[in-house]
Design a protein around this nucleic acid. Structure first.
Lengths: 216, 216
DNA sequence: TAGATTGTTAATCGATTAACAATC
DNA sequence: TAGATTGTTAATCGATTAACAATC
């Protein structure tokens, strides 16, 4: 049964399925059952079948799933084949690292440009992308709208910069600023990478080792 | 009632509470009720009280919570005051960016060193941390054990490097490699920052705009 | 004191797991 | 065909929310 509202938990598992299936495909695996996929990923076969059934019927009784077909389907659901357009705003160390390393193309994004306020980086090129002055962003987005902005700027300008970009029509933010951004404009999506939060959960877990399992 | 087993969902909210309370403390706010904290954070007062009650009784009837006290308590729970020790393994663009930008001290970590295999970066210093050759890591960890390793290395050496470090006694990994690491050694904790997974969930959400609310 | 707000118990909601008829 | 495995419905489990007595 196709669901109307997919839960966040399901959505967050999709990239992992995609990753696992890509890896199996690269290994030459042709078919997989929910059971064996579950064993490899450490989740139940039930959950896998439930998750997939939110989006359609991709398997075949008695056979399982065709790895490459399922991989493509999930990629399609994730929007990987939609050629989303993206710019990087803030080319400090982190913005630079993402421009240099991150495989945007493999996640379906094409990098349309990079912007910064600092004269030191303006005019330089990172991985073939020229860094342009922030003042030009209005004109640039008018000419060439983008789907997503990568926000790698200092915390104290995060919300105001987001607001400025939202006014220019941006509806997706990949936010690295460790600030909780918000907008009154409907349909604006924020995806946060909170480095500090992540490290703190690790800090918690090493500070509180999980309770030893007594012999049952 | 103190709980034995804290759910992952609760743990992942703790850094956000800590962040919010720090921000309020910086603003000079002295007391806060679960209700008003909930309004600011967009969660229910019930959930806040439930979450806190896993760890103790930090409030006072009729008054609420003392912001700074609660902030310290949560920081303590997260292990921020434990002065954890950490090294960075892999000083490419991302490792460099983290060494340069990330406020390790503010999350309770002290950077003990950085390691890489590339002669280009070995011997350089990033933000006061000297990059040493990977061969020296055995000796270094024997002398100065660390709690956490930041893994910013290429995917194809991720698992083998993790195994090598686990054999040297490392029990915490902040993993940036987009590989699902695992270990048979009990008590080893992995915290993953999966950039690609994160961006793909954003891709999903902009590809599937949430269903418009009909006027009820 | 009266009002406010906690910590906790009970009720609800949603997500995960189990079971199974359908069928390749 | 018989065995395997799906998609889906039902059962279980856990997390969130509501309610309220205790009390500052």
């Amino acid at each position: 049964m196709r669901k109307e509202n997919i839960s966040d938990a399901v959505i967050r598992r999709l990239p992992r399925y995609y990753r696992q299936l890509s890896e199996m495909y690269a290994r030459g695996v042709v078919r997989v059952s929910s059971r064996s996929l579950g064993v490899e990923m450490g989740i139940t076969a039930s959950q896998i079948r439930q998750d997939f059934s939110c989006f359609g019927e991709f398997g075949q009784q008695g056979y399982g799933y065709h790895v490459d077909e399922l991989r493509r389907e999930i990629g399609h659901i994730l929007g990987i084949d939609q050629d989303h357009r993206l710019i990087v705003v803030g080319v400090g160390h982190l913005g630079h690292a993402l421009l240099q390393n991150f495989p945007f193309a493999r996640t379906g994004f094409s990098v349309q440009g990079a912007f910064d306020v600092s004269p030191t980086v303006i005019g330089t090129a990172v991985n073939g992308v020229e860094v342009r002055p922030m003042e030009e962003i209005e004109a640039s987005l008018r000419d060439q709208p983008v789907d997503v902005v990568v926000l790698t700027i200092p915390q104290f300008v995060a919300q105001q910069t987001a607001d400025r970009l939202i006014a220019l029509g941006v509806r997706g933010f990949w936010n690295f600023t460790n600030v909780e951004l918000s907008s009154a404009v409907p349909g604006v999506e924020f995806e946060n990478i909170h480095f500090a939060d992540s490290l703190l959960t690790l800090s918690y877990r090493i500070a509180h080792p999980p309770i030893k399992e007594e012999n049952p």
